[in-house]
Amino acid sequence: MPWDRNQMAARAAKELRDGYYVNLGIGIPTLVANNIPAGMEVTLQSENGMLGIGPFPYDDEVDPDLINAGKQTISELPSSSYFDSAASFAMIRGGHIDLTVLGAMEVSEGGDIANWMIPGKMVKGMGGAMDLVAGVKKIIVVMEHVSKNGDPKFIPQCTLPLTGKNVVDMIVTDLCVFQRPDHDSPFRLVELAPEVTEEEVAAKTTARYEGLATPVRV
């Protein structure tokens, strides 16, 4: 049985470590915040200028001056701090953020990621994604294994305009997890979702990857 959105986020959350500073993208990556292991201290950064994102506010605490990068209302923590956008991206581009979790439309076997535009159709812009993939130490992509049309999204070469070249370290899909130890190595299949087979993953993936002799089933 494939993982649902929250299970995918929970799997990505297993990569968190005590003391990490983390930036989460919009969509499934945001759910990673609900899956931080108890007792682990993880500080979430919001690129619009905040360290230490608190939970969504209670109804009577909503403050229009306090939002996350997805423009949702949030709350602050006793440890929070605020800063401007240039300072925020100095953290990101300066390599001070340990981990980012992002969505993607396509990832290539060489670790390229495309998630910001579909020429002639979607013109929202890249926001902070290009800065994140260029500057953060570890890049995890969380995405559905295939598109709504059933087309593979982990493919030999991206067909859409890139967000970053050779930057992805790990891919969590609803079917499995691919990982690589460094940016010169190929991705390896390391985990399968319950009841998902290596054959199913192979049938829905056009990228080359290394199979594990005994993939971990979780």
């Binding site: 925020s88 990101i92 581009r93 926001g127 902070g128 290009m130 800065d131 970053g164 050779n166």
Partner: peptide
């Protein structure tokens, strides 16, 4: 890119006409 935009404004305001960044390389 958002960080490049913030830095372009910060730099412009600081009298710095240009800077090098990894953001956007290969795109």
């Amino acid at each position: 890119p958002q960080g490049t935009l913030a830095e372009r404004c910060r730099a412009g305001g600081a009298g710095i006409p240009g800077f090098y960044t990894k953001t956007g390389v290969g795109t």
